[in-house]
Structure formats: structure tokens, C-alpha cells
């Protein structure tokens, strides 16, 4: 896991075996500070992650550039992080 910018927590779980991608992503999400979001890179759609994130977190998934799947996760009440993700991915559906 690396902290590329002050707001992005980059987490590449592409070559990890279940359940490590889920565990690491949930840990990273729990530790998010105001304005921060997780950008998770995975080789496949993260089975079970979205159900586990619950209502406290928002997420957006798209095809990745360096990995098959890219998921953005931020706290639902963090408007700054939400705006940053929106600026990266365009308007969220």
C-alpha cells in the first residue's frame, strides 16, 4: 500500500490470495482520514467487498488501466474525498 498524494491511498491487491484483498481494503477504508480515498487495484471484481463496506462508505468501480478492475472507496459523509473521486472518474452514476 502506498500513499501517492495526500488524498489517495493506493492499494494494489492484484496478486494476493483471498481473503487478503478484502481484509487489506477494509483496513485501509477504516483508516481513511478526512479528504482521503482508497484507490484499489484488483485482477477481478472484488467478491464480497461492497456488501462489507456498508452504508458508511461509498464506492465506484471501473475498468483499470494497469489492472482489470479499479475501485475507489471514500467515506460517504466526506464531501471533499467524494469530489476528488468525481474529478478523477467524471460524474458518478
Amino acid at each position: 500500500m502506498s500513499d501517492n498524494t495526500s488524498s489517495e491511498i493506493l492499494l494494489d491487491v492484484s496478486d494476493l490470495e483471498p481473503p487478503e484483498p478484502l481484509v487489506l481494503t477494509l483496513e485501509a477504508a477504516e483508516q481513511l482520514k478526512p479528504g482521503q480515498y482508497v484507490r484499489m487495484l484488483h485482477r477481478r471484481e472484488p467478491c464480497m467487498l461492497f456488501g462489507e463496506l456498508g452504508e458508511n462508505f461509498s464506492h465506484y468501480q471501473r475498468e483499470g488501466f494497469t489492472s482489470a478492475v479499479e475501485v475507489f472507496i471514500w467515506r460517504s459523509d466526506d464531501t471533499v474525498a467524494g469530489s476528488t473521486v468525481r474529478a478523477i472518474v467524471g460524474e458518478l452514476p
Partner: peptide
């Protein structure tokens, strides 16, 4: 595959 699954479904 859509995967909005929960651990609770197991």
C-alpha cells in the same frame, strides 16, 4: 460477475 455479496450470506 456482479458481486454485491455479504459475508453474512454464507
Amino acid at each position: 460477475m456482479r458481486a454485491d455479496l455479504s459475508l453474512q450470506q454464507s
